[in-house]
Each structure stands twice: as structure tokens, then as C-alpha cells.
Design a protein around this nucleic acid. Structure first.
Length: 509
RNA sequence: GCCAGAGUAGCUCAGUGGUAGAGCAGGGGACUCAUAAGCCCUUGGUCGGCAGUUCAAUCCUGCCCUCUGGCACCA
């Protein structure tokens, strides 16, 4: 069985999850479930990034122990994963011993190898912000902004990783592997960035400035810089499982350069490990057409929103609305449009009328199809076309179009019902009419079984509910499930609650 | 400023070197199994602008305009 390993970025537990976090996890989950449906042995990793100065500061500001602070915030992300029905195989936290050990081993290895050296770093330091400043932080007149307080030039000793010496290798790797970054234009911008010489990466922080981190194994007076620590999670989680390298590291566009596009492949290469096979870089969500911002209230709480509606509706919307790699806009109005027209009216209603008619006209048992005439031929011909296009689009991460295609098949099934008008056939006592009626009911049920199977990665719980109504087991994989046939003949259909109930009032509230 | 992306029907987006497409919204109609859902028909665009290549460009090339994002650590 082909194995497939993908990861999400691990979330920094300095604040609560927002819509972007939810999206990335759902996107990765849809990919993971798609690959499982295709018969692959998938390992899906997500987790939290828990070290660093901001976290230490936030914990102090809140007056709680740092460990307690990260435990509490990490719990929110674990809950989000559960709420979104993610199929992750593991959830790694960078404060776990299993991770810390891998980081320390990696640092020691690089140190022994001579890829890490100690040097003096000179710069302007703001004690109030506890950070080094850069020239771009200066105001036009050369002074430092008030928020930094007193700024002094200091010299500090730190450890540096020889990033620059691997720059030629990275450039070669990017040129030789066009699929290393998706979408393609991100690879170009990465190469652009590499036109300039890299600086070596400072990978330590003195303990008297920052103690919330992983101590350097070769100098306990320092802790590890948070990015160096965090990136290794993708490896530390599966080191013992032998699953490295990842097929995809799924990340947001903001952390491609320099973290995932430069630090990460070079770190791995220096350690003698292969880089990930590819980085999948997604875009950002705006809210109501504007940048999301908690302070202005232009914000959607993914937890509250999901609970208010329905997990699968949320998952469907996120994947249906955004083109992977591009930005998209989230608004309650647009959500409602998709929810009503595609989920409730098209899919949900098809499920409902199928079960109703089978109950009413065939005592709840799916009949065998007996005739194949123009309406059947048309729908049956559309199926393999839909399925094949859906697969190709999914493989290319074009989920927004793939889902539209699947929905078009659902629409075609609704149209088929109108052509056959089973409610009229039910009043036709002739043998031919009755045969057409039985055929119609069989055809609808089969089309629903097939069409819904495509929707499983995006809406697993919903699809399994539909399948339960069709007396089918939960879907395990697509193999053998996507060919038109008559396996539902004789199936005693069960009841299914309204899948996507309409909101009480359609006006926005 | 530099780099990248986007610019196609009211909205969200597909798409192709050869007389422009879908969904939603809008208009009309027939039906009733169904979540007043679904189905059929339909209004609507000089495919950002200019020039070029070509028998032919929305799709190729060049220039320009507008919007968005990034420019070193926030998905």
C-alpha cells in the first residue's frame, strides 16, 4: 500500500484559533481523507507550537505558569480538531519530551558537524519589547518609536546555523524539483528571494532573556530559537515510524519565506535527511471583504460558527469557496447562499425525496432497475464523466471545482426525477408504467449512493448518514464503490433526519 | 519602489488560438415525491485598456491601468 504523510503547520498557542487555522486543518483533512479513499496508507499530523518569547510574555501577563498557559491554549486547538472532525493520526505539542529530544539530538549533530558556531551579535535592543530592532523599525528621522522605550546598542553572544553555506544546494533543489512548491508561482518567489545571499540563522536565545524553550545540548545557558524548534515537529512525530519525508507540508503563504521554504529544507539537508517532497501553500481568508481583525470586530469564531451550523456545512464551505493557493472571502451571507442552494435544496432535498418516494411507492425497499431508456442512459453516462473529472480535479487540489462537479451530478439526479415523475408513474397501473416506476426509484438511489461517495472527504459524517439511509455501511474507500450497478436492489431504507435544516429566518441576524 | 497574484454576465468563479460558460441572484412557465424544495425556459458580458504576432486572440507577445498580497519570521 502506498504510504502518504501530510502535515499542517502547528499553531502558535499564543491566542485562540481563528478561521485561518480551521481552514488549514480542514483542507489537510480533505486531502488526507481523499488519499485514504484512494487506498493509501495515510498519516495526518497536526499540533501546536508552544515555545518562544511571546508565549512566555502572554503567560506572565496573565499571571499563570507558562506550562499551564500552553496547556490551556493547546486544549483549545485539540478541541477545534475534534469539533472539525479531523482525521489526524497524531497531535504533536512541541513541549512534549519526544519532540524536545529530537530537537536536542539534531542540534548536537549539527554542532558536532561544525554547522553551528558561536559568534557575537551586535544590534539595537529594546528592553521593553525584549527584542532586537532592525533598521526598518526606525522612524524617518532616525529615532526609535515610543513603543520600544529605551533602545540601547548591545553585543550578545549567540549560536548561528550555517544557512548560507547550503544556499547553492537549495537553489539547485528548487530548480530540479518544480513540484516542490504548490502553487507554482510560490516557487518562483522563493527563488527570487534566494537571489540575495542568506544570512546565517541565529538559533539561540540567552536564558536570561528567554527561558521558555529547549536548552541547547552543548550550552545550557541558551534555549533554542522557536522556529528551529517548531519546524522539526514534522520529523520528530514520525521519526520512529519511518514515515519521513512528508509528501506535503501544508502551510499558509505567510510562513513559506523564509521558514518553510528556506530554513526547513536546509536544516533537513544538513542533518542528512531528505526535504519534504512538497510544500502546499494556501491563501488567506478575509472576512466580509476586509482583513480579519479581532480589534475591529471583523472576525469569525470558527468554533462558535461551526457549532451554530453544522460541521460538514462548515467544512464544505471552506473547501468549496477557496481556490487552494489563492485568497478568499468569508461572509455569513455567502455561507448562507451555499448552505441553502447547494447543501439544503440540492443535496439534502434529494436525500429527503428519495427516501420519501421509496417509502411511499415501494414500501421502503429499493426495487431492481428493469428498463434502460433515454433518461437512464443520460444519467448513467454522466456518472463516469463526473467521477473521472472529480478525481483529476482532486488530485490537482482543485477541490472547489471538484465539489461543483459533484453537485452538478446531484442536480442532474434531481432533473432525472422530474423527467420520470414517479408520482405520475405511481398512478399508472400498466406493467410498463410500473416497471418504469421501479426503475426510477432504483436509479435515484444508485445515483445518490454514487454522487454522495464523492463528497465523503469534505463531509464524511453527512455522507455516512446518507449511506446509512441507503442501508450501506460507512465508506471505507472508493475502490469498488464508484461503479454504477444494482447493489441497492432489495435494500430496506432507513430514516434520515433533515441533513441541512433551513434557518428559522432567512434574514441575517 | 521591487516581486507576485488577480482583473470574464449584478455576485462568486470556470474556460479555450477559431462566432463566450457554470452556479447564485433577476424574469417567465409547467408540476407536486420533497426542507414553499426541485425542474424547464429566459434577461444579462465590446472576456481591464492600447498595440503587435496570426487567416483568426478573451486565451500568445509588449506596454499601460486598477485591485490585492508579500518584501524576513501572525493559517
Amino acid at each position: 500500500m502506498k504510504s502518504f504523510y501530510l502535515t499542517t503547520a502547528i499553531d502558535y498557542v499564543n491566542g485562540s484559533p481563528h478561521l485561518g487555522h480551521a481552514y488549514e486543518k480542514v483542507l489537510a483533512d480533505v486531502i488526507a481523507r481523499t488519499k485514504r479513499m484512494q487506498g493509501m496508507d495515510v498519516f495526518y499530523l497536526t499540533g501546536t507550537d508552544e515555545h518562544g518569547q511571546k508565549i512566555q510574555q502572554s503567560a506572565r501577563a496573565k499571571g499563570v505558569a507558562t506550562q499551564q498557559f500552553v496547556d490551556e491554549t493547546a486544549a483549545e486547538f485539540v478541541q477545534l480538531a475534534q469539533l472539525l472532525n479531523l482525521s489526524n493520526n497524531d497531535f504533536i505539542r512541541t513541549t512534549e519530551p519526544r519532540h524536545k529530544q529530537v530537537v536536542r539530538d539534531a542540534l548536537q549533530q549539527l554542532f558536532d558537524k561544525g554547522d553551528i558556531y558561536q559568534a557575537e551579535y551586535q544590534g539595537f535592543y529594546s528592553a521593553r519589547q525584549e527584542q532586537f530592532l532592525q533598521e526598518k523599525d526606525r522612524q524617518p528621522d532616525g529615532s526609535w518609536p515610543e513603543i520600544f522605550g529605551e533602545v540601547v546598542e548591545i553585543t550578545e553572544s549567540n549560536y548561528f546555523f550555517k544557512l548560507r553555506s547550503y544556499q547553492p544546494w537549495l537553489i539547485e533543489h528548487l530548480k530540479a524539483n518544480e513540484q516542490f512548491v504548490f502553487p507554482a508561482h510560490r516557487r518562483k518567489s522563493l527563488l527570487e528571494f534566494l537571489n540575495e545571499p542568506l544570512n546565517d540563522l541565529c538559533i539561540s536565545r540567552p536564558k536570561d532573556r528567554l527561558e521558555w524553550g529547549i536548552p541547547l545540548p552543548f550550552d545550557e545557558n541558551y534555549v533554542t530559537y522557536v522556529w528551529f524548534d517548531a519546524l522539526l515537529n514534522y520529523y520528530s512525530a514520525v521519526k520512529e515510524l519511518g514515515r519521513w519525508p512528508a509528501d506535503y507540508n501544508v502551510i499558509g503563504k505567510d510562513i513559506l519565506i523564509p521558514a518553510h521554504g528556506i530554513y526547513w529544507p536546509i536544516m533537513l539537508h544538513a542533518l542528512g535527511l531528505p526535504p519534504p517532497k512538497a510544500l502546499l501553500v494556501h491563501g488567506w481568508w478575509s472576512i466580509n471583504g476586509a482583513k480579519m481583525s479581532k480589534s475591529t470586530g471583523n472576525y469569525v469564531d470558527p468554533v462558535a460558527f461551526t457549532q451554530q451550523w453544522n460541521v460538514d456545512a462548515m467544512r464544505y464551505f471552506l473547501v468549496r469557496e477557496m481556490t487552494v493557493g489563492m485568497d478568499a472571502d468569508f461572509s455569513p451571507e455567502q455561507f448562507l447562499v451555499r448552505y441553502n442552494s447547494e447543501l439544503a435544496n440540492n443535496l439534502g432535498n434529494l436525500v429527503n425525496r428519495t427516501l420519501n418516494m421509496t417509502t411511499r411507492f415501494a414500501a421502503g425497499v429499493v426495487p431492481a432497475a428493469e428498463v434502460t431508456e433515454e433518461p437512464e442512459r443520460e444519467l448513467q453516462a454522466l456518472w463516469p464523466k463526473t467521477r473521472d473529472e472529480f478525481m483529476a480535479l482532486s488530485d490537482g487540489f482543485q477541490f472547489h471545482v471538484a465539489l461543483e462537479r459533484a453537485m452538478q451530478f446531484i442536480t442532474a439526479t434531481n432533473a432525472y426525477i422530474e423527467k420520470r415523475a414517479p408520482w405520475k408513474l405511481a398512478k399508472d397501473p400498466s406493467p410498463a408504467g410500473q416497471a418504469q416506476l421501479r426503475t426510477t426509484l432504483a436509479t435515484i438511489a444508485e445515483a445518490l449512493r454514487l454522487g454522495s461517495a464523492l463528497l465523503w472527504p469534505a463531509m464524511p459524517a453527512t455522507v455516512d448518514k446518507i449511506r446509512s439511509g441507503l442501508a450501506q455501511p460507512a465508506l471505507a474507500q472508493w475502490e469498488g464503490e464508484l461503479e454504477w450497478g444494482n447493489r441497492l436492489s432489495g435494500a430496506k431504507l432507513g430514516a434520515v433526519d433533515i441533513l441541512f435544516p433551513k434557518p428559522a429566518t432567512e434574514k441575517k441576524g
